[in-house]
């Protein structure tokens, strides 16, 4: 599930509210929860156990041999693995970029410009479009000598021309740019909705104190939606780790020479293109460890937010 979409609800109540005591403990809740537990058990429980087990084996399906920790040694010796890990970390730079841009746009929208709903609706649109299809378009837009380059040339800005997807120093910026393009609208919608809820009295009080527009934004508006911003940042960070495969697959295939490889691609490639299930599983275990750290931060922030409100 796309983590991004969860943002909205993250803030809702999570501590159980006290309920009137029930007379007897019923059985039906068990039956009602059971299908969900089974679904989670198969998809997540079974997979966690198996992925750890496979990470100690070499060979392909049906012909697996136990090799101990050799797969872990192998991936840490594999420059593509470290490259993939680093690229995921580099793509985290998109998170502050998206957050700041979205915040800025949301603040502007919040001034109640004419047509703000239409603007917001259009800016949000890329977020729901399939990355596969949009990536195809971007591959033509960004390839060396492609559409972007010819637009730059026509605009007399030839010095900006690059092989956006073929140059190792630019390729991650290009992928990051497409991610920003797609995610920006999500941030704008989330932040502008939050800003609508800032009580008018607070703003009015600041204005009476003589604060200008900027000062109000920075000292009143932004702090008021601080928690929302925190959630957004974490969710985007998780997305940067776990849902960039499509962009890489469609735009560059991780090239040139691994320079745009990410963890998802590394796992896909080793597990399914090279048929090295053990190597893929070892990489998946490392990825899960990193994701767990993010999840822990996520749960901690949520808990803190609930306490704030209590």
């Amino acid at each position: 599930m796309s983590v991004g979409t969860t943002m909205a609800h993250v803030h809702a109540e999570s501590i159980p509210t006290p309920r009137p005591a029930r007379r007897r403990r019923a059985r039906w809740p068990v039956a009602y929860v059971a299908p969900a537990v089974i679904a989670l058990g198969v998809t997540f429980g079974y997979s966690f156990v198996e992925v750890v087990r496979y990470s100690f084996y070499a060979g392909s399906l049906g012909a697996l041999t136990y090799v101990g920790g050799a797969n872990y040694t192998a991936i840490f010796q594999d420059p593509q693995f470290t490259h993939s890990l680093l690229d995921n970390l580099k793509l985290l730079i998109t998170v502050p970029v998206i957050t700041l841009l979205a915040l800025g746009v949301a603040l502007v929208i919040n001034t109640g410009l004419r047509g703000w709903r239409a603007y917001r609706a259009i800016i949000f649109l890329p977020y729901i479009l399939p990355a596969t299809a949009m990536g195809l378009a971007f591959s033509y837009l960004l390839q060396g000598g492609g559409v972007l380059d010819s637009l730059l040339r026509d605009a007399g800005m030839s010095f900006l021309i690059h092989d956006w997807l073929g140059s190792p120093s630019w390729v991650l910026f290009s992928i990051g740019g497409v991610i920003v393009w797609q995610q920006l609208g999500f941030g704008v919608v989330v932040f502008s909705a939050a800003l609508l809820n800032v009580p008018a009295e607070i703003i009015e009080a600041a204005r009476l104190d003589g604060a200008g527009w900027w000062r109000i934004q920075v000292s009143v508006m932004v702090p008021y939606i601080k928690r929302i911003i925190e959630f957004f940042v974490i969710l985007e960070a998780i997305a940067a780790l776990s849902s960039v495969f499509t962009y890489v697959y469609v735009l560059t295939g991780a090239g040139p020479a691994y320079s745009s490889s990410v963890m998802e691609f590394y796992i896909y490639q080793n597990g399914f293109e090279n048929g090295a299930i053990g190597v893929a599983s070892a990489a998946a275990v490392v990825l899960l460890a990193i994701a767990s750290a993010l999840i822990a931060i996520f749960l901690w922030v949520r808990t803190r937010a609930s306490k704030d409100r209590a």
Partner: peptide, 9 residues
Amino acid sequence: MQYEARSAP
């Protein structure tokens, strides 16, 4: 594509 190449093709 994918560079897939890398692997793939």
